[in-house]
């Protein structure tokens, strides 16, 4: 479990992260979304114990992460730009990891060769970006981390490889209760992956959602009545957004599906549709409610 409490980080005069609080339960995948410069990387580097926060606490299983070897041995951070020691082969890197990470699984490393069809004795620096990223995942998964922090991890991977990586992620989360934090500037990329999503904007988490009940709890409703819309109709619902398209009222409503349907039926509309929302729509409306424009926050 990763617990982030009231964390701030300054670079000189610039405050990159402001009073951020959230937590990632064990065995879940947390998506950290935000545009470029929102502070995702800074926040993740603090979670990985690389940067030290100016304020607040970051703990993993209750222990502060900074300079904490015991916790860092269970964790791997994969940055958006990868680093390998100069002039090393995959095999040499694997040996290095074996000495560094106590849970290194040599058997798994060899097994995964099937998934990552790259020659182990090749120098990593000669490889393409995409291949380097595959190598990084290969090494990372072989180190059997309990906590995995991935900064824009899927960039540069083709669709097939993406799916492979996602599958291993799911598998590790399901089997070993691995905890994953994954950042992206693209909602679609992580939509099918995450249990929970937080959106970071200008250094603050502006919204945080559980994805499972997110979709079941919010609905798009299209209704039309004879004449005026009954005044009691809207008041008794948790309306996030409303607009009229001619005589049709379109609104986004929070609440249990059955309750909403029952409430609407009661008013005898001449037209009624209850539509599912895409994840993007949910965020657009939720953030619109808070005064943000999603265009500026996610690309």
């Amino acid at each position: 479990m990763i617990q982030i409490h009231d964390v701030s980080k300054r670079f000189g005069e610039f405050e990159a992260i402001k009073d951020v609080t959230f937590f990632v339960p064990k065995g879940s995948i947390y998506g950290l979304l935000g545009s470029n410069g929102a502070g995702k990387t800074t926040l993740m580097k603090m979670m990985a114990g690389i940067y030290k926060q100016n304020k607040g606490t970051i703990t993993i299983d209750g222990e502060p992460i900074f300079e904490n070897i015991k916790q860092k041995e269970r964790m791997i951070f994969l940055p958006d730009t990868l680093y390998f020691f100069p002039n090393t082969t995959i095999r040499q890197m694997a040996d290095f990891y074996r000495h560094i990470y106590p849970k290194w699984n040599e058997e798994r490393f060899y097994k995964m060769q099937e998934l990552f069809p790259i020659n182990m004795n090749q120098k990593i620096h000669r490889m393409s970006k995409g291949m380097q990223r595959q190598v990084a995942f290969w090494l990372t998964f072989s180190a059997m981390p309990d906590v995995l922090i991935l900064d824009e991890p899927l960039d540069g991977l083709d669709a097939v490889m993406r799916q492979k990586v996602k599958n291993i992620l799911f598998q590790d989360v399901a089997e070993r209760e691995m905890t994953v934090v994954i950042s992206s500037h693209n909602l679609f990329e992580v939509e099918d992956l995450c249990d929970r999503i937080g959106i970071l904007h200008n250094g603050s988490i502006i919204i945080e959602k559980e994805l499972d009940n997110l979709k079941t709890n919010i609905h798009k409703v299209q209704v039309a009545f004879h004449g005026q819309t009954p005044s009691s109709f809207l008041k008794q619902m948790d309306v996030v957004y409303q607009e009229y398209r001619g005589s049709v009222l379109l609104c986004i409503v929070r609440g249990k599906e059955e309750q909403i349907i029952a409430h609407i039926q009661k008013h005898e509309p001449i037209l009624f549709d209850l539509l599912p929302l895409t994840l993007e729509e949910i965020f657009i409306y939720e953030m619109g409610e808070k005064g943000y424009d999603i265009e500026n926050i996610l690309v």
Binding site: K45, G49, I50, I69, K70, K72, P79, Y83, I100, Y101
Partner: peptide, 14 residues
């Protein structure tokens, strides 16, 4: 930048 982040993400004390 790259190597400093990497080295300090490893489970090694300063």
């Amino acid at each position: 930048k790259l190597s400093v982040d990497y080295m300090h993400s490893l489970p090694l004390k300063r």
